[in-house]
Write a protein that binds this DNA or RNA. Sequence first.
RNA 1: GCCCCCGUAGCUCAGCGGAUAGAGCAGCCGCCUUCUAAGCGGUAGGCCGCAGGUUCGAUUCCUGCCGGGGGCGCCA
Length: 532
Amino acid sequence: MPALEAAAAPAVEVERPANPAFGDLATNLAMKLARPLRRPPLEIAEALAASLRDGPASAPDLVAAAEVARPGFLNLRVADAAYEAVVARILADPAGWGRIPAVNPRRVNVEFVSANPTGPLTVGNARGAFVGDLLCRVLEAGGQAVTREYYFNDSGTQIDHLGASVAAVRRREPVPDDGYKGAYVEQLAREVPDDVWAAAFEPGAGTSAVLGAWASRRVRGMIEASLARLGVHFDVWKSEASLHEEGWVDRAVERLRATGTVYEQDGATWFRSTAYGDDKDRVIYRSDGRPTYFAADIGYVTEKFSRGFDHLIYVWGVDHHGTVARNRNAAQAMGYDPDHYQVILIGWVRFVVDGVEVSMSKRAGTFVTLDDLLDAVGADAARWFFASRATHVEIDFDIELARKQSSENPVYYVQYAHARIASILRKAAEAGLAPAPDVAGLLAGEPEAALVRVVARLPEVVEDAVLAEETQGVTAYATELATQFHAFYRDARVIDAATPERSAQRLALALATKVTLAKALALLGISAPESM
RNA sequence: GCCCCCGUAGCUCAGCGGAUAGAGCAGCCGCCUUCUAAGCGGUAGGCCGCAGGUUCGAUUCCUGCCGGGGGCGCCA
């Protein structure tokens, strides 16, 4: 084997062949080396295989076979002992199984949902809530310290409109055109305490503002309760008004001004976003002096970084795509690394019933609430639905279908496998059988060998999810593992007093599978029931 | 006009440089005297939008086109 120039050495890529006949692992290294070495790929692969078999690279405890295949693949078969060691390790330390070395140990702030408290969360907010929380779980799995943050506007015209709507409904007057309608407004109107109602009509009190402030606090409580049903909990609830009151906005604008990227024109104050590649410059203070939403965003960035975060993530709907550049540009202008201002855009969700899109509008009151969705399909099923699809793609959510299929939903299939194992373990305990700590020889059985190979993949599935900041791989893996277990259940009798040693080993494998399923589900925030 | 995303099985979606393209649901045919049938087996179903290009190799990367969605406010 000729020595390789370091620069010419390609990265070693190892993958899992789709076809089990090709072994457990395969590498295209020989094909990558063909050009720099100017040798046929098959010849190189053969040399590598020889080295692994009984040469300097041989490791009989890990690699049981090394074979060369057609274009130049090097296919490896992992030793049974290596898989058996995995099972033993899972049983010895279940909590540690699936934990991976920290990928990026940093303090990260993840802001998501952030719907204004002018009405209950709708199904439109559901994806943001699930995806945001899923992202946080994945980041945590990668060793990051995550703060879940909810940003909301608790003052201003929208809140005034809410207050005016509540007042109108309470007085049985028509709701203003720009007001809010819907059952929740009627509920709010009924619940206004007498002292609040009286205060709202004090001379000079500002009826809409007073009622709006009260109503938005009530709505925020409703939102928090809905999120709790999803299993989503925020660490920080940040009000936009507080950013202004505490001076974050003005200070940030002055900081920008000092860099020369702020100018006055037409009576307004602008940020020179085009200096960083944006289409146009952006207004910070309107000509009447009122700050734009962008102004608050600028102040918020400085406020977040002042709390010591290394990295900020914003989970937004695609409709906010146009605001990404200005915000990142402003962060950069203020001296922050733009790579630490990350925006994740969530694809649109079309909620359809019988193939027809359901339009949603808080103002028109024609929306399906998040609670309606949960009543229909359940938190685990809804969470699974979003976890199994890429964040950025647009998706259809057929509510009727989800409701109808709920018992056929893949999430129940996976949970069922977990519950089934739990049942077996209970039965085994009654029969006086316990999982064997030592499973040497376990792989002799075909059903066992097939199952272990899937169980053993958990760490890399977790790592892939962390690197991609996506969870579809986890749902796919959980489904595959459940399928493999069901096959094992069919082919291998676990509880069998006639062969106690084999039974104990199979119990160990079943338990390892249960732990693995639970880990995958936990990463997704989905429950792993002991019985169904 | 400019920018972003998508186009894979009847439907909803994975796969995103490798060796026969996958899952769930829907369809059809079977399987409960045995550890949970929310299960299992079998079967059927695809010019991976179209056309070029890069590569030993493209559903995967690049370009163009066609089709769908979204964004381009001193709104949020």
